[in-house]
Amino acid sequence: MSAPSPLRGWLRPHRLVMLALALGIVLWAVLAGDWAWLPKYTPLLLKGLGTTLAILAESVILGAAVALPIGLVQVTGPRWLSAPAQLFCTVIRGTPLLLQLWLLYYGIGSLFPMIPGIRGSFLWPYLREAWPYGLAALTISFAAYEGEVMRGAFAGVPRGELQAGRAFGMSPLKLFWRIWLPRALYRALPTLNGEMVLQLKSTPLVATITVVDLYGVISRVRSATLLTYEPLLLLALIYLILTALMVAIFRFFENRLPTRGA
């Protein structure tokens, strides 16, 4: 911003050399590697990308919706609500996501068929598939991490602002909608970007329970073509681009929001 030309400042001689080196490595990977599989798998890759993004978006939205009450009751709720919420956050954040995922899919998934009559219910088509378990595990995980963030955000809203609302005679509900929630969301927003990048990086785990996301497609390519590096390098590149896009989008919105410190 302050530099006259950001590009000129960025493109210093050594960076040009490094760029050339990086391009050389990419070129070498493209020329020396075996990419004959790529055209054949492109439609599948795009579908996998769609699945990854869908699971990411769904789990973030659902998880954030669950995180709000979890954060709130820990700040203001009665003991019988705050204690379970705290326990939930501790347990989920204290165990690996892969284990939770497998517990849901293999564990709970193996219990469902024992319930009499469930095979005839409308739920059965979903319970038989893998992605609901993946979505559930990712949602729970996001809710626990984001719930902790929301707890801090709710607790961090200055008392004076809430007291001012009360002094104006706002009902507790109105106070919540007009002041407490917007101010807390405002404080939680900067961390959301990081949390979403972490969530994106968790999505490939669902491939271990047979959901065919981006990573799942690449695993399929690897077993079909017996290539080790090419598919994995492409996968890493796609995730790099996705992360960069996400960061750029968030930066755009953050710059539009008038924030003063945190």
């Binding site: 968790s202 990573y215 890493a236 995730y239």
Partner: peptide, 14 residues
Amino acid sequence: AVPELVLILLLYYA
């Protein structure tokens, strides 16, 4: 920026 799972596979084999 790259998922740990992908890094683990890449670094493990590479």
